[in-house]
Amino acid sequence: MAFENPPRDQIRELLKASSVIAVVGLSDNPDRTSHMIAKAMQQKGYRIIPVNPGASSILGERCYGTLAEIPFKVDIVNVFRRSEFTPDIARQAVAIRAKALWLQLGVVNETAARVARAGGLTVIMDRCIKVEDSILLPNGKGRN
């Protein structure tokens, strides 16, 4: 059976119930899409945790080399990596007991989706978290 994203009402509830987003592949370059989207989500009130072994901090937050190094609960693992890297990221997301694995626009991997779903995570693929948040929670998390 082909992958389908959850219905929008379920995505809305996920976003409302989430506050910490680990961004795998977050760039420290402000001109990169990952940086712009993470910054916008941070401005909407989410805590953004960069997962980038090549940087020490991004957007005022300490960077971690892997999801396993993050010493607190992560709600959503948002991925800005090529599709072939996502099955391992899905396994890491399951291991840290995230609520969801979110593969950004253009990132699709059925194996990663199966791994994450088998581990109890909600999976969203090939959608931009910033766009979905803007559509589903236009007035912010507490006012929709």
Rank of each mutant, 00 (worst) to 15 (best):
D88Y: 01
A113N: 10
N52F: 05
I48R: 07
E132F: 06
A98Q: 10
M41I: 01
V23W: 02
I70C: 11
A113G: 10
P30N: 12
L15S: 12
R47A: 05
A95K: 08
L137M: 07
A68W: 06
M36I: 15
G54R: 10
R117I: 10
L105Q: 12
Q10A: 14
V79E: 13
V20Q: 09
G119W: 04
P30R: 02
A100S: 15
E132V: 00
Q43R: 08
R32F: 03
D75N: 13
T111G: 14
V131E: 13
R32D: 02
I37V: 15
S34V: 03
K141D: 13
R12E: 15
Y64S: 05
S27I: 00
L15Y: 07
I76K: 04
T111P: 05
Y46P: 03
G54I: 09
L103S: 08
R91H: 07
S57R: 12
G140M: 05
L101A: 08
A38S: 14
R47Y: 03
E4Q: 15
I70D: 13
P87E: 12
R127A: 03
V108N: 02
F72V: 09
Q104M: 02
N78G: 01
N5R: 06
S34I: 02
D9V: 01
Q42D: 05
S56P: 04
D31R: 14
F80H: 01
G25I: 03
I21V: 10
R97S: 06
V74E: 04
K44D: 06
E69Y: 00
A22T: 01
R91C: 02
R8K: 00
P50A: 01
G60R: 08
T111F: 06
P7E: 09
A93K: 03
F3G: 05
N109R: 08
L137Q: 05
K44P: 04
V24F: 13
F72L: 12
T86N: 11
F80P: 05
R12N: 11
N139W: 15
V108M: 09
Y64W: 15
G140K: 02
L105A: 11
Q104W: 02
